[in-house]
Amino acid sequence: MTDTPTPATGQIWQDNDKRAEDRFLLIERLDQTHAHVRQVTRTAGGEPVPLPGVRGTRIRLDRLRPTSTGYRYIEGGEPR
């Protein structure tokens, strides 16, 4: 199992809630306490595409960890 990276712009995270297991989020920007994310789907080539009609939201950074009520890292991100 890989370590969970520090949240960064461009990363894709998946919701761990069993009711929303197909919910993938792209981090668009970060501030000191929150990640500003948009729900995405994947193309056949694997590129994330924002879902039309779904507005962005904010998630506290401390929730971006692999717990039952958190999120798990999938891929991507800009190098730091």
Rank of each mutant, 00 (worst) to 15 (best):
P48Y: 01
K18M: 10
P5M: 08
L64Y: 01
L64D: 05
T41M: 13
L26K: 10
N16T: 11
E21N: 08
D15N: 15
L64Q: 02
G77H: 02
G53R: 12
T33C: 09
A35E: 03
G76C: 05
T43K: 11
G53Q: 09
D22K: 07
D3Q: 15
D15W: 05
V49G: 00
I74V: 15
Q14W: 01
R80W: 08
T43L: 03
I27M: 00
P48A: 04
Q39R: 11
R72I: 04
P7W: 07
A44K: 08
G76R: 00
L26G: 04
Y71K: 04
E75Y: 14
P7G: 07
V37H: 02
R19P: 04
T41A: 10
Q39E: 14
R80A: 12
P48T: 05
R55I: 09
R19K: 15
G45S: 12
A20I: 08
T43G: 12
L25P: 05
H34I: 09
Y71E: 01
Q32T: 14
T6R: 13
R38Y: 01
Y73R: 00
G10F: 06
L25C: 06
R55P: 03
L51V: 13
W13D: 10
Q39V: 01
G76T: 06
Q32N: 14
T69M: 08
P79Q: 05
G45K: 05
S68N: 11
G45E: 07
L51I: 15
T9V: 13
I12Y: 05
P7E: 03
R42G: 01
G77V: 02
L51Y: 05
T33D: 13
L26Q: 08
T57V: 13
R58E: 11
R58F: 09
P52K: 06
D15V: 06
V54A: 01
V49P: 00
T43Y: 01
L51Q: 11
T41V: 14
